[in-house]
Design a protein around this nucleic acid. Structure first.
Lengths: 332, 332
DNA sequence: TTGTACGCGTTATCAC
DNA sequence: GTGATAACGCGTACAA
């Protein structure tokens, strides 16, 4: 691998000149620039990452932290990865993806200074990554809301709005007995969604439905159990609001029970995972605008990196209803 | 961030001692070791990645390269990511995941020397990443087979065996008119699978079925078209071999046609994507032992990094049949 | 067993 | 405009 000295020699200039030209600093004779660039091309020179980082005291790199959990097989995560990769690249940073199975591997990685800042996803209510990064003084943006949001930059879906979107869609179709099947409430977003939903119920004078709430433990069996609990409590339910992944199980279980969807029961998910369109019937759900979330997160981190002392931003991205075939008029 | 000098001062030793103790070199008084480790702990010192890499002329880091394509939403990819992350960590390297939307972003990243070696997945028939890495002289292992395998380390599924597994399963159930629905043949693995399948047919004296082969373009509509082509060619088909993702569409389309699975038609997929178990009915498929592939790839790369001149290895990992509910006895 | 000094490849500072 | 030269933080001869 050639070094900056090789280029300087080839072009007949000093390494300072090479460095400055490559980093667009100062003004140089077009001729000099040409000679340098030509040498770079010929020798296929690329500045060494380690040396550059060490000297500049910044790596110009941003890392996305994802967790490795059994539940995290939702292909929606792949959409997030892709969208964030693009958004970060566009904002001029190198992009890295780090998958940690435990906090230790995250810590080892985070404290070596391989990146300037972090994007955190799959946020938990008491996310240890946040505590760690705060302590280390490493800039980051949280994609999702932890319990303690004080002093942290946050980008998240506007779950208050998704709750409204789902409820209003069902109300417009004539549904009144609406159940809510929550994902494990230990997941921050699940707790937030439920709270928003309950508030929304109240707004529409439907507090009665607050009884029709169940929680799955995240497994298929758990979802079936939650559904059974709901059904044994009230057989007049005509619609269910849930998340995309449990919705798949709900769809199948209801059909096994001899119910037809949406004739007998309407089902609406949330997140518009790629799985939603593949479901049978295709699932009505809420699209989160993953690209906008990615864009906002990348921007927020870029700003934080530039102005370390700026006040933390809390950005909520609106979502949109995607009507497919799992919802229909309430049975009479 | 504290440096090695801070630790040396805190522990009352030289930086050499700190460095050696941290890297397990030489023998030291237990007392000295304790003092150093205690200082490290107290100041939360971690060797700086850039400085370490620069001095050692190696980064001790391995990167997995994934491509960003519309088709790549299969959650199986997430399993690969996780398994490879773990395997690489276990083999003592830092793990990075790089998602590239184009060759340029890959090249920019690969030529800065941020990692010692690469693991390549989602291999294409003429994969430009392979050409680039070869030219750069950067060590890598290809997870999947490109057309030109000469001189490259390869770890892949034994598709010759998966073909046999699927065919034998169906034959044992009494099927004789078996169709094959291939993924786009521009994907290397798809071409390899088809070739292996045709060879397997011949072995069983079933060359007649070679007519019952169709190719999807990877979209849902394309899969439906391929299925229609198959059906218009021969209505006596009782079983279909395909990949997991198109299998989902096949399942749904056949049901729309009024066919029951597996009573009227058996369907078998390949790859045991997390989606397979969620399908309706749950899909019989071939499990690829993702963990073993990951393990083998990480090992192969570690060996290559240690012995740059070792002869290239071509490792094929056997798979296993997973019988669920989409296959059954042939209708009489 | 410990300390000094140099080198890794780059950027930053400051002089010319 | 261009060029010396001193960091950057760590590993490692080599000397003590």
């Amino acid at each position: 691998m050639p070094t900056i000295y090789d280029i300087a020699r080839e072009a007949g200039v000093s390494i300072t000149t090479v460095s400055n030209i490559l980093n667009n600093k100062g003004r140089f004779k077009p001729e000099t620039v040409a000679r340098v660039l030509e040498a770079v091309e010929r020798l296929k020179y690329r500045p060494n990452f380690a040396a550059k980082s060490l000297a500049a005291r910044r790596t110009n790199t941003v890392t996305l932290s994802a967790l490795l959990t059994p539940e995290s097989f939702d292909p929606l995560n792949l959409q997030y990865f892709g969208a964030i990769a693009q958004a970060v690249s566009r904002s001029g940073f190198n992009f890295l993806l780090h998958i940690s199975h435990d906090l230790e591997s995250f810590e080892r990685f985070a404290s070596t200074g391989i990146c300037d800042g972090w994007l955190l996803m799959m946020i938990r209510r008491q996310d240890e990554r946040i505590a760690l990064l705060k302590e280390l003084g490493v800039p980051f943006v949280s994609i999702g809301r932890p319990d303690e949001m004080e002093g942290v930059d946050i980008v998240d879906t506007d779950f208050e709005q998704t709750a409204r979107l789902a409820l209003e869609h069902l109300l417009a179709l004539g549904h009144r007995r609406i159940a809510y099947l929550a994902e494990p409430l230990e997941f921050g977003y699940s707790a937030i969604r439920l709270r928003a939903y309950l508030a929304c119920l109240k707004e529409y004078g439907l507090e009665g439905n607050a009884d029709l709430v169940a929680e799955t433990d995240g497994t298929e069996a758990g979802t079936v159990r939650a559904l059974e609990a709901l059904w044994s409590r009230d057989r007049s339910i005509t619609a269910i609001i849930t998340h995309d992944i449990p919705a798949l199980t709900v769809l199948r279980t209801l059909r096994e029970w001899g119910l037809e969807i949406p004739r007998d029961v309407s089902v609406i998910g949330c997140s518009d995972s790629p799985l939603a369109a593949l479901a049978d019937p295709p699932l009505t759900t809420i699209n989160l605008y993953v690209e906008r979330i990615a864009e906002a997160a990348a921007e927020a981190l870029a700003r934080r990196l530039q102005e370390p002392e700026a006040p933390p931003a809390h950005i909520l991205i609106p979502a949109r209803l995607v009507v497919r075939e799992s919802t229909g008029p309430a049975p009479r």
